[in-house]
Design a protein around this nucleic acid. Sequence first.
DNA 1: GAGTTTGAAACT
DNA 2: CAGTTTCAAACTC
Length: 404
Amino acid sequence: MYRFMAELDTAARSPSRVGVPEILHPHHNTIQLGMVEPLSRSTLRFHCLRQSPQYLLTYPDYLLEPQSSQYHLITGPVPGPPDSSQYSSVSAPWFTNEPIPSIMMLADLRAPLASICVPQPVDHQQLQEGLIEFTSHITQPVVGNVGGDGEVVLGYLCEQGPVFPTQTSAQRNDVTLSQLPQHHQATCSPCEPRDMQPQAPPARTAGPLCELKSRKPCRCSRSQCLKLYCECFANGMMCSNCDCSNCHNNAEHEVKRHEAVQLCLGRNPAAFRSKMAGAMSQRSKGRRNKGCNCKRSGCLKNYCECYEANIMCSISCKCVGCRNYDGGSDVGLREKTNDVISIRPVSVITPAAVQAVCGCLLAKAEEAELELQCGAHAEHMVLEEFGQCVARIVNAMFKHGSTC
DNA sequence: GAGTTTGAAACT
DNA sequence: CAGTTTCAAACTC
């Protein structure tokens, strides 16, 4: 989110160069090219080129404020200058610090929407009465930050797919306004899809973003693509151009698909939330939702979810023989981007270091036991050993210029 | 491309 | 919750 916000902020200050979000349709895999037009220092207007003007989304001031909510319900109509009387936007803290699973169906959105301030004439009671009320009244796009990394979801209820994940700045190449067709710069009139192709295709980068992963066709054969084994399903996407067999992860099997979603959510409410989302949304804390459990790969192969996501293992991991940490191995470690480096949870206090410290403490305790030391003295020996370990860790921190 | 390895998900 | 099985991706040859 912060990265996206930073980009918006930059765009506002430098109108000649803005990021161009791409909207990927989860069902059809079509790509729409949008355009961000900086209207002022703090307000941007989204042009969804394929859509009619009434779908314009406005990002007002609060979206650029770090302390504001990640989730917003944009109300309209929005066309026209960014006059404050022409749009109203309601901050919607649906799930604090949690991404919106892109597999969420409209019904799933009902509860969170009912908990937020809903613009007139819709009231909470109507929303709580059911999906029909929900769909019949909420006709504005729902905007949310997915993964905490600027991956924006646009949920529009009249579309076949409720969720439109956009790419983050990390997954797309910036395109300057000058590179766009002139009519795109001037208006937001509907355009043909061929006009929406980006100048340069986005490079695939490792990360938790489902829309990118979903581009890779799955090859499921037994799961009907309705279990989390299927990456498309796990990423909240329907299969499209996949090599799977007996696939039920499509619109034709919507009922069964929805049942599978509910089953997974019942088993694990966070099943469709990116495992690495926490690392992105809480990069300052360097945590993620769930760690890996690798045993044989050393967390240096793509078998490891952390390694695949281009992040280092953390205290959340239960891996054995982990080498996916700063200094764990020069071989096999990927070149880290600055962003990734910045989210390293703890540069020195790695799982291996913790393991080593525990080993030292156990050894010292055994030594005290063998020497038949009294309890107090044994405790003193262990604590002294712990102090030495901490000192070594601190030395390592300063030596490597790390922080924890 | 077939077979093997790996680890997450699902199951018991 | 731990152990086992299933599954599909990653990897090797």
